[in-house]
């Protein structure tokens, strides 16, 4: 279980106030909210981005994460799909992902890794040479899913992974998330669109407005938001 109980600030400005939620293995927990609610802050802070100051506790399967840097969290099995994946010119995706895989799961031969990588990139229809270099927004999101598939994390934070995708890409991404969940991955899905949820069945829904949790529930809450929006909070 990924248990989040914390407040988050950036340069002394409090963005999230006493947010409390948890993600069970093999389930999807959706965090919704209007623009500027602090949703992206939540995923960055949980991942361990050092620009965010966290007060409180973030526990993964019982381990306290708050004092750990990003890379150690990743090695414990946490993953984040970025809203704006970063371009690294000239760095081979395969070479980098093998290094990442080794740091998370231990050594793997070039040949064995090639199988893992090729299977994943084939199923996603991804042909990427360098890490996001020159890729379109949609390709970058697919590349994030490639990394999710290859690294096979215990918990994944998906930060607006659905934004900027066309219907076909959306389906591919949704399928990847479903597969991961089926494999036992706990997913924290941050979004402010509802379209994505037509493809995915979330188990839990949390609504954040102005940095505070205003309501928690199940899929019905998402459906309510779809009709009523956030203006009632």
């Amino acid at each position: 279980m990924l248990k989040i109980n914390c407040s988050v600030s950036v340069k002394d400005k409090k963005i999230l106030d006493n947010v409390s939620l948890s993600v069970k293995p093999g389930t999807i927990h959706v965090v919704m909210g209007p623009n500027g609610a602090g949703k992206s802050t939540l995923s960055h802070a949980v991942m361990g981005d050092d620009r965010y100051t966290v007060e409180g506790s973030i526990k993964m399967d019982g381990d306290e994460l708050t004092s750990l840097p990003m890379d150690e969290r990743a090695r414990k099995g946490l993953f984040m799909s970025f809203q704006y994946p970063v371009e690294i010119p000239g760095l081979s995706m395969k070479k980098f992902l093998r290094a990442a895989y080794k740091s998370v799961h231990g050594d793997i031969t070039v040949m064995d890794f090639k199988k893992v990588y090729d299977t994943a990139s084939k199923s996603l229809g991804v042909h990427t040479k360098y890490v996001n270099d020159g890729a379109s927004g949609g390709q970058k999101k697919r590349n994030e899913m490639l990394q999710l598939k290859v690294l096979n994390p215990k918990y994944a934070l998906l930060d607006e992974t659905d934004s900027g995708l066309d219907v076909d890409a959306l389906k591919v991404v949704a399928q990847t998330v479903k597969d991961a969940v089926q494999d036992g991955c706990g997913v924290l899905l941050v979004t402010h669109y509802l379209k994505f949820l037509e493809y995915l069945q979330p188990d839990d829904v949390t609504v954040i407005v102005n940095g505070r949790v205003v309501e928690q529930g199940d899929i019905k809450l998402a459906q309510k938001i779809e009709v009523e929006g956030y203006s009632g909070y």
């Binding site: 990003m70 890379d71 990743a74 970063v86 690294i88 290094a99 990394q147």
Partner: peptide, 11 residues
């Protein structure tokens, strides 16, 4: 860039 790679487990 550094953060991005770190988030994948690289030091």
């Amino acid at each position: 860039q550094v953060r991005y790679l770190q988030s994948r487990g690289l030091s």
